[in-house]
Amino acid sequence: MNRSPRHIHGFSLVSALFLLVVLGALGAYMVSISGTQHFTTLHALQGAKAYHAARSGTEWGIATALGIAACPATPTTLSGGLSGGDLDGFAVSVTLDSCTSHQEAGENYNVYEITAFAQTNSPGFGQPGYAARRITVTVTNAAP
């Protein structure tokens, strides 16, 4: 007496549907991870560009401040030779935050505190591609 295999029909259909659902969910998860990785890389790159734009601003600010003979009223926005064309879409503002005159061993020198703030030209905190960095440096024109 052989039973016919009729009552096991459809088992392969259930397992195939289960596999399709599981593989579809894994595929959707992988696409989500890929998108997150793309935006993370974009933000890291924009952050590095913002850092280097701000660093360029501090270097330019140092060169400008060291050319000032007497301390100006502070804070002072430094303007002039820093242009946005070479900064890859970043606006940089450079400020002379403080300047103090000192005398030591018969020598006069100044101590400058300079801040550079770089951000993308289209600010929008939380917007894709937006990045900003602020760097503050202290320098002096004292002879070594």
Rank of each mutant, 00 (worst) to 15 (best):
F125P: 08
F90H: 08
I135D: 02
P72N: 10
S56W: 02
Y29I: 06
H102P: 06
V139M: 06
A63C: 04
Y51K: 03
P123G: 04
P123C: 12
H7F: 10
N141C: 12
N121L: 12
G80K: 14
N2P: 13
F90A: 04
N108P: 04
A44S: 06
S79D: 12
R134F: 00
T138I: 11
T136Q: 08
Q119Y: 01
D97M: 02
M1K: 15
H7E: 10
S4K: 13
F39T: 09
P5Q: 08
E113P: 01
G84C: 13
P5Y: 09
Y51G: 03
A69H: 07
R55M: 12
A91F: 05
V31F: 11
H43F: 00
H102K: 13
G89C: 11
N141L: 11
G124M: 06
T138Q: 08
G129I: 07
S83I: 15
D86I: 14
A28Y: 01
A73H: 11
V92F: 02
D97Q: 07
N141S: 11
L13C: 09
F117E: 04
N141Q: 12
L17S: 15
A44G: 05
S93C: 02
T36I: 04
C71F: 11
A16R: 10
T58R: 03
P128C: 01
G126W: 02
V94Q: 03
L82V: 13
T140L: 07
L82D: 06
L78N: 01
S93Q: 13
L17P: 10
R3I: 05
D97I: 01
H52G: 03
A73E: 14
I8Q: 11
Y51C: 00
T140D: 08
P75H: 00
G24C: 07
S101V: 12
L42A: 10
G67E: 12
G81Y: 12
T41I: 06
H7P: 00
C71V: 08
V14H: 07
A132R: 09
G10D: 01
S15R: 05
A50E: 00
T140G: 11
R6I: 03
L17G: 15
T120V: 05
T120E: 05
L42G: 02
L66P: 03
A53Q: 02
T136W: 01
G85Y: 13
A118D: 00
S15T: 14
E104Q: 14
G57F: 00
N108T: 14
H43S: 03
A65L: 03
T40Y: 05
A63H: 10
S15F: 13
G47Y: 01
G124Y: 04
M1G: 15
Q37L: 09
R55F: 13
T58F: 03
F90I: 05
G24Y: 07
V139E: 05
L19Q: 13
T76R: 03
A142H: 15
H52D: 08
N110T: 08
S34A: 13
A65P: 04
G35Q: 14
G124H: 09
S56M: 09
V92K: 00
G126A: 04
S32D: 10
R134G: 00
G81C: 09
G85T: 15
L66A: 07
K49C: 02
L82H: 06
A105M: 10
H52T: 12
L26N: 04
T40P: 00
I33C: 06
A28N: 02
G129D: 05
F117S: 06
V31A: 11
